[in-house]
Amino acid sequence: MSEAVSCPVPPEQRPLEEFQQLCESWFFSWPAGQEPSLGQRLAGFWLLMLPVCSLIASGSWTLKQDPPRLLAAAAVAALVLPLLLLVRQWLGWTYVMQRLLRESVDYEESGWYDGQTWEKPLSWRERDLLVARHEVRPILGRLGRAMATSAGLMLAGASLCQAL
């Protein structure tokens, strides 16, 4: 407890606190739960974008004359939003992972111009390393698999568009 008192890092800038904030966040908690939850939310955004992309694709004279190709093109284009959401989540979780794995904490006392560095005590480093390995690494694995699946679907859909 004395380490927490002597720690000059503001509580909201401590790596473990940043991890907990991501876990409690509506957006960043998606991959922290079960994979079906992440998949369901991404599928929901894909379904939300599908009519919009279909409407945009229907403006093409060539695609308007070829409904199967129009639908395939819209389905591929609708994958862009879920992929962008996954990239944003990947960036947030990677940032926290890097902060947890470092032996020191960079922080700001009152603004961007007065950055400081504080060396983590051994007990903090061990705890942060455990969280990084057993909590964040599986999340990054889920995000990586989801991004690979989305990219694979985009490639397969693009190939289907060419084949039609």
Rank of each mutant, 00 (worst) to 15 (best):
G144M: 14
P68R: 00
E126V: 12
D128R: 06
L129N: 11
F45R: 13
L42A: 07
V131F: 07
L79H: 01
G33C: 08
A72D: 00
Y113E: 12
C53V: 02
E17Q: 14
W30E: 05
S6E: 03
R99I: 02
G59P: 05
E18Y: 01
Q89V: 03
G59F: 04
L85I: 03
A146C: 14
E103V: 09
L122D: 14
W124T: 07
M1V: 10
S60K: 11
E103P: 06
P11L: 07
Q89L: 05
A73Y: 00
Q65N: 08
Q20F: 05
A74P: 00
W112L: 05
L79E: 00
S123T: 08
W93C: 01
W61Q: 10
A74E: 00
D66H: 11
G33A: 11
C23I: 03
T62R: 13
V131S: 10
W30C: 05
G111K: 07
V9K: 02
V96Q: 05
L70F: 03
T149H: 13
R69W: 02
Q20N: 09
V136Y: 05
A151S: 15
R14C: 13
E3F: 04
P138S: 15
F45Q: 10
P15L: 03
Q162H: 13
E119C: 09
C53K: 03
V136N: 09
E103S: 15
V80Y: 00
A158M: 11
L84W: 01
A146W: 03
L50D: 00
L63V: 02
S159A: 15
M1R: 12
E109F: 11
L160H: 14
A148H: 10
W46F: 04
R133P: 09
K120G: 08
E24M: 04
L129E: 11
E3Q: 04
P82D: 00
F27W: 04
C53E: 04
K64N: 05
G44K: 12
P36K: 08
A151R: 15
G144P: 11
L129A: 14
S54N: 08
G111L: 06
S110Q: 15
W124R: 08
M97F: 03
P121D: 02
L42G: 04
L70Y: 02
L55W: 06
P67V: 03
L164F: 13
E108V: 11
I139W: 05
M154A: 15
G157H: 06
L86K: 01
D114S: 13
W61E: 10
A57Y: 01
T62C: 07
F27S: 05
G59D: 06
V96C: 07
L164V: 12
Q40H: 09
L164W: 14
Q89C: 04
M147W: 09
S37T: 11
E119W: 12
L81R: 00
C53P: 01
G33K: 11
A43K: 12
G39I: 02
S60F: 10
C53Q: 07
R145S: 14
E108W: 12
D106V: 15
A57P: 02
